[in-house]
């Protein structure tokens, strides 16, 4: 077997740059997708006229079309209507919109588990609807939907590798680019698998910490 560790060590600076790019794109998109999820999930749960159905349509379109097509639509399609984004922001937009659709459903699912009694109690105390939504319903929902939100965030991180298709220099792009010149496919793909696994593990660890924190009030 021919596995050249020294080759990988020599390529580390390039891989590290790719890793950083993957991390930057993914973290930004995770943030934006959560924002989309909270706003969209709220609009869906509160059955806001017009906006509710619009969000539902968005969710259906995203969930039932290939992410690669969405990416090409953003990168190659949008400039035709005068909306030209950089490589980086095209990537962020694509991943945010993709994961946002799933986060909408996650938040909506969490909100559906909040007992109606919470709403009545808030109402009886004269709290305003936005108090109820932001201070009571969302935090309670967040705790129930955190595992699903984490799954979506992990999928987003993995799907960031599609961005190599438009030439963004993230982790997968760096690997494929190197393999084209050095033909060290086994080493490169092994290396980026390990790096993706490490990123996912870090994300899960952070979410686990957060879950434990959110769980605290509910333990007897």
């Amino acid at each position: 077997m021919d596995f050249d560790v020294n080759y990988l060590l020599a390529q580390w600076p390039a891989l590290f740059a790719g890793l950083l790019m993957t991390l930057r794109v993914s973290l930004l998109a995770i943030g934006f997708s959560l924002l989309i999820g909270v706003l969209g999930g709220g609009v869906r749960a509160l059955r806001v006229p017009l906006l509710g159905p619009a969000v539902a349509l968005y969710v259906e379109v995203i969930r039932n079309t290939p992410i690669l097509v969405q990416l090409f639509f953003i990168f190659y399609g949008l400039p035709a209507i005068g909306l030209e984004l950089s490589l980086f922001w095209s990537g962020v937009l694509c991943l945010s919109l993709w994961a946002g659709a799933y986060q909408v459903e996650n938040v909506r699912g969490g909100l559906a588990t909040v007992e109606w009694g919470m709403h009545e109690a808030a109402f009886a105390l004269s709290l305003r609807p936005w108090h109820y939504f932001c201070l009571i319903a969302l935090p309670i929902a967040f705790r129930t939907s955190l595992p699903a939100m984490l799954n979506t965030a992990i999928s987003l991180l993995k799907n960031s590798s599609y961005l190599q298709a438009i030439g963004l220099a993230e982790l997968t792009f760096v690997a494929v680019d190197r393999i084209a010149t050095d033909f060290r496919a086994l080493e490169m793909f092994s290396a980026i698998c390990v790096l993706y696994l490490a990123l996912v593990a870090l994300l899960a660890l952070a979410a686990g910490r957060l879950a434990a924190h959110l769980q605290r009030p509910f333990r007897p």
């Binding site: 007992e115 009694g117 919470m118 009545e120 109690a121 109402f123 009886a124 105390l125 004269s126 009571i136 935090p139 309670i140 705790r143 959110l214 009030p217 509910f218």
Partner: peptide
């Protein structure tokens, strides 16, 4: 009207995530 009237429910309905 609601601001002048308090209410206590059968099932307490305390907000579980708050002290």
């Amino acid at each position: 009207l609601r601001e002048e009237v308090g209410m206590v429910f059968q099932d307490y309905t305390l907000f579980p995530h708050m002290s």
